[in-house]
């Protein structure tokens, strides 16, 4: 029963990831894409526990799930920070141009 539950759960998770992948594909802004990647990363941690249940080694796969969730968090913070920085650089360039015009 546990195995069937895990198999059905994994298949359903995988099916429900398809709309998210669609959002990554067409996402009008880059933030939409990152959001989709973040959602899939969180769900991958769940999928790792599912695979662990299938292989009867949950205690091993839970460690992978923790480190995957950790790397997902670091990735999201990195990307938001990077976009923040490039945006403020853009601001600064615009300000520099304005300053040059005033002069």
């Amino acid at each position: 029963m546990t195995h069937w539950f895990a198999i059905i759960m994994g298949a359903a998770l995988f099916t429900l990831m398809i709309p998210v992948i669609y959002r990554i594909w067409v996402g009008p802004t880059s933030f939409d894409r990152i959001l989709g990647v973040n959602v899939i990363g969180t769900k991958t941690a769940v999928l790792l526990v599912v695979i662990g249940t299938l292989f009867d080694r949950v205690e091993m796969f839970v460690d992978f799930a923790i480190s995957y969730a950790l790397l997902n968090f670091v990735g999201a913070i990195v990307i938001s920070r990077y976009l923040n920085r490039t945006i403020s650089l853009k601001d600064m360039e615009a300000r520099e141009k304005e300053g040059a015009r005033k002069r």
Partner: peptide, 26 residues
């Protein structure tokens, strides 16, 4: 825990380095 489960120096070191990177990012 690398003796019993997957893990060891490289993996633990990467996770440790990620914690410092997280401080630098936040």
């Amino acid at each position: 825990h690398g003796h019993v489960s997957p893990g060891g120096g490289f993996q633990g070191g990467v996770v440790m380095g990620a914690s410092f990177i997280l401080i630098a990012l936040a």
